[in-house]
Design a binder for these strands. Sequence first.
DNA 1: AGTGTGAACTAGAGCGCTTCAGAACGTCCA
DNA 2: TGGACGTTCTGAAGCGCTCTAGTTCACACT
Lengths: 351, 351
Amino acid sequence: MDRPRKPTLDTVAGAVGVSRATVSNAYNRPDQLSAALRERILETAASLGYAGPDPVARSLATRHSAAVGFMLGQGLSASFADAALSIVLDGLASTVDGHDHCLVLMPGKDKGGPRPETVARAQADVVVAYSLPDDAPALTAARTRGLPMVVIDQPVLPDTARVEVDDFGGARLAASSLWASGHRRFGVVTFALHPDGHNGPVTTARLASTSFRVTRDRLHGYLDVTGTDTPVWECARSSRELGRAGARALLSASPRPTALLCASDELAFGALQAVRDLGLRVPTDVSVIGFDDVPAAEHADPPLTTVRQPLAEKGRHAGELALRLLDGGRPGEPTRLPVSLVSRDSTAPPK
Amino acid sequence: MDRPRKPTLDTVAGAVGVSRATVSNAYNRPDQLSAALRERILETAASLGYAGPDPVARSLATRHSAAVGFMLGQGLSASFADAALSIVLDGLASTVDGHDHCLVLMPGKDKGGPRPETVARAQADVVVAYSLPDDAPALTAARTRGLPMVVIDQPVLPDTARVEVDDFGGARLAASSLWASGHRRFGVVTFALHPDGHNGPVTTARLASTSFRVTRDRLHGYLDVTGTDTPVWECARSSRELGRAGARALLSASPRPTALLCASDELAFGALQAVRDLGLRVPTDVSVIGFDDVPAAEHADPPLTTVRQPLAEKGRHAGELALRLLDGGRPGEPTRLPVSLVSRDSTAPPK
DNA sequence: AGTGTGAACTAGAGCGCTTCAGAACGTCCA
DNA sequence: TGGACGTTCTGAAGCGCTCTAGTTCACACT
């Protein structure tokens, strides 16, 4: 079972009869040696089964690992049940991969965000944080490691790059359009205010201490228009099923709301279903509005009125910021991406 | 701008007045030094802003990186549009994270799987491959690096751990139940046979050279029952929208199929929609059957008959295999997880 | 006093690579 | 003919850590 030791740079150098530095150059600086020699080295390497410089050793020597970490607020399946997150992540991944960087995923555990130990051991030299609670331990862990960081949709941290959208403004926009068309009785279906898995109506106290920036802003945007006494139903995750249950609960009040404001499209899809469940019609009986404008919004039944934010762009931009930080760039001003209201067929004036 | 150099083990050792080895032990082998000294070291470390041993250097010294790579056949958003994949990935991630390992994601590019360069540079010491074409370059790259590998739903490779489900048997099961209940005119909606983005009817030649094992097996399972002249529509990805379009195309044939066999639930959801689009009813006019049994299948309208495979289990098991390989374990026999037919309301005998 | 023992700590050799300051050897032009 | 210059290749010093094989020391036992 004495499997042969894996070949190293030295092995190859010895075999070809050149110095280790030259072999290294063959891989990293082709201009530093003659094409012929390089060819010879690469051939010998291949015949020895040498797959190129060891990434870890290289990282140690160069002091960067060509990897960006991604810290997530939730588990993977929960995260990706939400198309919006997938799209952002995809934008990030392709940007980063295009520059030969890997993506190190740190999914959230129970209490909002990855465990600090995970963060401490991750081989990444920049991290991107998304949908973490404002006080996530992972954030602290990344800081004490001195990792450059870019946050998406999160509160500013000193020395941190940031990309965000105007969640408050977007939500306000949506609510205003409904208000302007005559709606006066609203219900709000939101995703988590706190990372504790709560499902149900939201109390004022809970609202006041909201630990997710995005939730807070969207909620405040809605309530700013509809009034703070608007009933709010919290779902632990942004999922169709939970949205359906929440909407059903809100719609069973009397007088029944004439419009449902949802914190995400995913929740709105559930709301659409809930309206049908109760034998009512969208938008005749109830208007439903979403947030994100994921691709499915356009094909929903009926097509969903929603607040569009440039999701892929958000991921791509975060990726670029990360790469820039990696290059020693300064964080710079936060980038604010535009939102807009996309009117489709799930909203109409009340009867 | 001369930011102070980051503290290292040596810095801390110097400050406390002990050897580097002792500081290392303070972190990795608390039993090797007195509790008091350990405490003192940790305190000093904290006050110096030392966040613990550098992961890269540690990996070099220990020769393992505490990370498992995950090679994917497609881009992230495409992947996660498919709930099945998310669930598998989530199972994998939690297993792996529970053992203090990171997940390095290598999403696929255009031509089936991550780029070989990406794989060559990934800091992982075991990789899991999922839904790659059988001949993906990433597979070769991982091999030449000598990385232990576990493949999910892919053909056996020498010296590779493997978890799989009986796709052929599952598909056969589904088709047989329909056949037994009297159906004779079928249509099949499948996801990609080749990583070339093709959408449309499938030719015999294309079918014969299918490069994804899963596709091949499910297809063959269906066609084994329904006959090889059954029309098959290929969708480039497993998405609701593409499934809808494909189903619509198949249903416009005359005579119209009385049953649609879909390679995934996601495609089946699209098919459900397509039937409605045409003013027909499920299952009265058309039966629809899926594959995977994702959570949404139960809540579809109507609830979807489908082939269940233990998705989370699959991911978890792959994770465990990966961890075992990391520990120097042998690949062992492939694990075959069970499939079963879950009958719900989307299937019925033909009129 | 001599010996054995275990606990607490250290020295130093790597891990596999990059990189910088040269060395060696032309070539070219004055 | 000689020196300035370019190209090609080398030597050796790290990168920050782990780990084996010690050394030291206090204490107990005879």
